Computed example of a mutant assay.
Amino acid sequence: METWGFEASNVAVAQVRIEQQLVEAATRAGLTNLRVTTDSEVETIGPTQWLGAEVQANLLWTPTFAFLDALAAWPEGFRVTGFQYEMQPLTPLQQEAGMTAPTGSVRIGVAFPVILPPTAAAPAAAGAGS
């Protein structure tokens, strides 16, 4: 596990690397109306540093699970920190137009192990106790 994770010189570089890979994976999976955000601080659990992110998109089950399957194949590893979905019933107008599936949105919280130099994560940790 010592080499498990995204290696970066600082938190900002780790954020960009993770965000880019999430956008690529979500786009390939077919998620639409995509929004990806990353946390600004690293969380330390035991010997591992974690950087969180959230992926929001339209709720489409096949692309959502294709996206999660893609994450599972990443060698860096990850953990799911949240999964929420909201479905909106079809309006009468949508039903008249022939739509059969309800619309909605999905929010997937994930965290990735990061390997940062000791000084890269220190400012965030110092600021948290002030």
Rank of each mutant, 00 (worst) to 15 (best):
G129S: 08
R79I: 10
N58E: 10
Q20S: 00
F6H: 10
G104S: 02
E24C: 07
I108P: 01
L68H: 07
T119L: 10
M87E: 03
V13W: 09
G52L: 11
A122K: 04
T27D: 13
G104T: 01
P47W: 00
T62I: 09
T91E: 12
Q56E: 05
L116I: 08
N10H: 10
T100Y: 07
S105E: 08
A25L: 15
T48M: 00
L60Y: 08
Q20L: 05
Q94E: 13
Q21T: 09
R79M: 07
D69V: 14
Q21V: 08
A53K: 04
T119F: 07
V16E: 07
L90W: 09
Q56S: 11
G77D: 05
G104F: 03
N10R: 06
V13S: 04
L51G: 11
N33S: 10
P63M: 14
F78C: 01
T44G: 03
P89K: 05
S9L: 13
M87T: 15
T48N: 00
V13P: 01
Q20E: 07
G77R: 06
T62P: 07
L71V: 06
E19V: 02
F112Y: 10
A14H: 07
P118S: 04
A101Q: 07
T91C: 11
S9T: 13
P102V: 13
T32I: 13
A97Q: 15
P117I: 12
A120R: 15
Q21E: 14
G77T: 06
P47A: 11
Y85F: 15
P47K: 03
L68Q: 12
L22S: 07
E24H: 08
M1W: 00
G52P: 03
S9D: 11
T3E: 00
G127S: 09
A120G: 12
P102C: 14
A126Q: 10
Q56W: 01
G46R: 06
N58I: 10
A29M: 03
P118N: 01
I18D: 03
T100K: 05
Q49L: 08
F83L: 08
L90P: 01
E54N: 11
A53L: 08
A97T: 09
V110I: 09
I18K: 04
A101F: 13
E54K: 08
L116S: 04
W74G: 02
R35L: 13
T32G: 11
P92S: 13
Q84V: 11
V13M: 08
G77S: 06
V11K: 04
F78Q: 02
Q56C: 10
V80H: 02
G82M: 03
P102I: 12
T64R: 05
